[in-house]
Amino acid sequence: MKPTATLLFSCPDRQGLVAKVANFIYANGGNIVHADHHTDFNAGLFLTRIEWQIEGFNLPRELIAPAFGAISQPLGGTYQIRFSDTIPRMAIWVSRQNHCLLDLIWRQQAREFSAEIPLIISNHPDLEPIAKQFGIDYYYLPITKDNKEAQQQRQLELLKEYRIDLVILAKYMQIISPEFIDTFPSHNIINIHHSFLPAFVGANPYHKAYERGVKIIGATGHYVTSELDAGPIIEQDVVRVTHRDEVDDLIRKGKDLERIVLARAVRHHLQNQVLVYGNKTVVFD
């Protein structure tokens, strides 16, 4: 496909917003290929995703954002513009479980989504052979209460060194500190939680679900914020369980679900389909 630009834009709702945004693209010679709009009446917000072809567009790429800013600012809006031929660089963080890591690498190798994976960081050495198999640099950074601050600084240094755009917590069993999130934007950190949030927050959700006798279990892909397991939700799904299922069965079914939900969340982000407002998202799929 020819390269495109994607605008994600939100502002207080008012008449004429669709026309105003579309006219910006039309007046500069752009050809719109996708357009989706949503109004959150409770919040009084207009939200939109518009994608158009760059070929023949009158503005050079570096001037598109400033030019649209002149429209957004008097409307009290926020926006971001991304280009389809800019390949994001992802870092995957893991502990000991390999199912989400392997799934993401396989999907990237199969070109299910467009991204580079130059870096894996872990607080355990167990998964380094997978990194070597696929030629990905692996850094083992053990975390204790005494060294967490120093290791966090090393993590930030690696993200800068490798020019990382997006961090995926693929079963990384550590809490990310508010200081880290303030430094590396939270809407560029995606976590997979093995529960249908907000149910069963924290550790051991499958055991909690088993003890509660639930009939469905779920998984949630969400952005990371300073509040544990409470960031804006990107993707969720569930699978049924029965009284015959033991905890191990719930974990097995849950791992299958985690792979799918995390892959969907990552794909939505990489395809510039997620617009965050407050602690909610609109996913223009």
Rank of each mutant, 00 (worst) to 15 (best):
166 L>R: 11
176 I>G: 10
143 I>P: 02
176 I>L: 14
153 Q>R: 15
164 I>M: 14
144 T>K: 04
174 Q>D: 13
155 Q>F: 04
143 I>E: 02
151 Q>L: 01
151 Q>A: 06
154 R>Y: 05
158 L>T: 10
138 Y>R: 07
159 L>E: 04
146 D>W: 10
148 K>M: 01
166 L>V: 05
162 Y>G: 15
156 L>V: 02
151 Q>P: 03
152 Q>F: 00
167 V>S: 13
153 Q>L: 13
166 L>K: 10
165 D>L: 14
143 I>L: 01
176 I>C: 10
158 L>V: 04
163 R>F: 08
159 L>R: 10
149 E>I: 06
177 S>I: 07
172 Y>W: 09
165 D>P: 13
176 I>M: 08
149 E>D: 02
174 Q>S: 10
145 K>L: 00
154 R>G: 08
145 K>Q: 10
160 K>T: 07
172 Y>C: 15
138 Y>I: 06
156 L>A: 04
177 S>T: 11
138 Y>M: 06
172 Y>L: 14
148 K>C: 00
166 L>I: 14
175 I>Q: 04
171 K>A: 13
170 A>H: 08
146 D>Q: 09
139 Y>A: 12
171 K>E: 04
171 K>R: 08
163 R>S: 15
162 Y>Q: 13
170 A>C: 13
138 Y>T: 00
161 E>N: 13
157 E>G: 06
156 L>C: 02
170 A>M: 09
174 Q>G: 07
178 P>T: 07
172 Y>P: 15
146 D>T: 13
138 Y>A: 00
173 M>Y: 05
177 S>N: 05
140 Y>S: 11
175 I>F: 08
145 K>S: 12
157 E>K: 07
160 K>N: 05
159 L>M: 11
161 E>A: 12
138 Y>N: 02
170 A>F: 11
162 Y>W: 15
160 K>F: 02
145 K>I: 03
140 Y>G: 03
153 Q>P: 11
149 E>N: 03
170 A>I: 07
140 Y>R: 07
169 L>P: 12
144 T>E: 01
175 I>P: 09
173 M>E: 12
178 P>D: 02
177 S>G: 09
143 I>N: 00
147 N>C: 01
159 L>W: 01
175 I>A: 02
143 I>S: 03
175 I>M: 03
173 M>F: 03
159 L>D: 04
142 P>Q: 00
154 R>W: 12
166 L>A: 11
154 R>L: 15
150 A>L: 08
172 Y>H: 15
147 N>I: 01
166 L>Y: 12
160 K>D: 12
168 I>Q: 15
157 E>R: 03
173 M>K: 08
146 D>Y: 06
145 K>E: 06
